[in-house]
């Protein structure tokens, strides 16, 4: 509890580091902030060309089917891969100044969240242009599922960023793990492609219910399954709690290791 109060006390640090990250990112590049939109757009083009046109589309409007899950997935994966090194990268600061260490992963994950929200602008533009239409009642569930994903991403990032301080390999191992994880998650395909008997195990992947919920809301235009939603919520809360506890345990020794 004291930890949460302290993070609140340092809220201005969180805000200004987020601002610094977002503003500093594309400084000096010709297209600047536009890259935030161009990146997901190009990814969409590549993915839908390969998996829609080349491999043959399994779903109607495959680009959209893919897009609504790909953007949330990119939020999660960049949180983890980039977040692993977020404490190590700031070792000068960690070694010299006191501040609640949770701030660093928090800032990183929040930046990725903001990026996702900006990508959603592109997503909604695509939805409008293709006349896909939206279900406004279902859209009400979008903030909930974003919050759940945010908790998941934060929980995992807390763990990997703390462990990376002691074991630098984690950073590189994560690259491989995240790639495998993407193919094991319903990003490019749906639950219908998984054999019935494996579906139980498949859904143990904390990202699976989250991605399915995004697709329900935006692609199927329906309110997500209550069971899917509950499962996602529980996993989000549990992981965040585990992340905070692990981080709290490890953070006292950061400075000695760095």
């Amino acid at each position: 509890m004291t930890m949460l109060r302290e993070i609140y006390q340092y809220r201005e640090m969180v805000f200004s580091l987020i601002k610094r990250d977002l503003r500093g990112r594309y400084k000096g590049s010709a297209l600047g902030f536009l890259w935030t939109f161009l990146n997901p757009l190009f990814q969409l083009l590549v993915y839908s060309f390969v998996f829609g046109t080349v491999m043959g589309a399994a779903y109607p409007k495959y680009y959209l089917y893919l897009f609504v899950a790909l953007i949330p997935w990119l939020f999660f994966s960049t949180s983890l891969v980039g977040g692993a090194g977020c404490i190590y990268a700031q070792k000068d600061m960690v070694n010299k100044i006191y501040f609640p260490r949770e701030v660093l992963p928090l800032v990183h994950v929040t930046c990725q969240l903001i990026n996702m929200l900006l990508s959603f602008v592109v997503l909604f533009a695509v939805i409008v242009v293709t006349r896909h239409g939206v279900n406004f009642l279902a859209l009400c569930y979008l903030p909930i599922i974003m919050l759940v994903e945010y908790m998941l991403a934060l929980g995992f990032t807390l763990i990997v960023s703390a462990v990376t301080v002691f074991l630098r390999d984690v950073q590189y191992v994560l690259n491989i793990v995240v790639m495998a994880w993407q193919f094991l998650s319903p990003v490019m395909y749906g639950l219908d492609r998984i054999p019935q008997r494996l579906q139980g195990i498949f859904l143990w992947n904390p990202m699976a219910p989250v991605l399915l919920a995004y697709r329900d809301i935006l692609y199927e235009k329906k309110i997500p399954d209550l069971s899917t939603l509950t499962m996602a919520c529980v996993m989000g809360i549990v992981l965040l709690a585990v992340g905070l506890v692990v981080f709290e345990k490890l953070k006292k020794h950061f400075s000695e290791e760095l």
């Binding site: 580091l17 503003r23 500093g24 400084k27 600061m93 501040f99």
Partner: peptide, 21 residues
């Protein structure tokens, strides 16, 4: 701590002071 070279002195004051809580 936390100074960003591309940002102005004023902006950096905000970042740096925020790090002190």
């Amino acid at each position: 701590a936390g100074f960003h070279p591309d940002m102005s002195g004023r902006e950096n004051i905000y970042i740096n002071a925020a790090i002190f809580g």
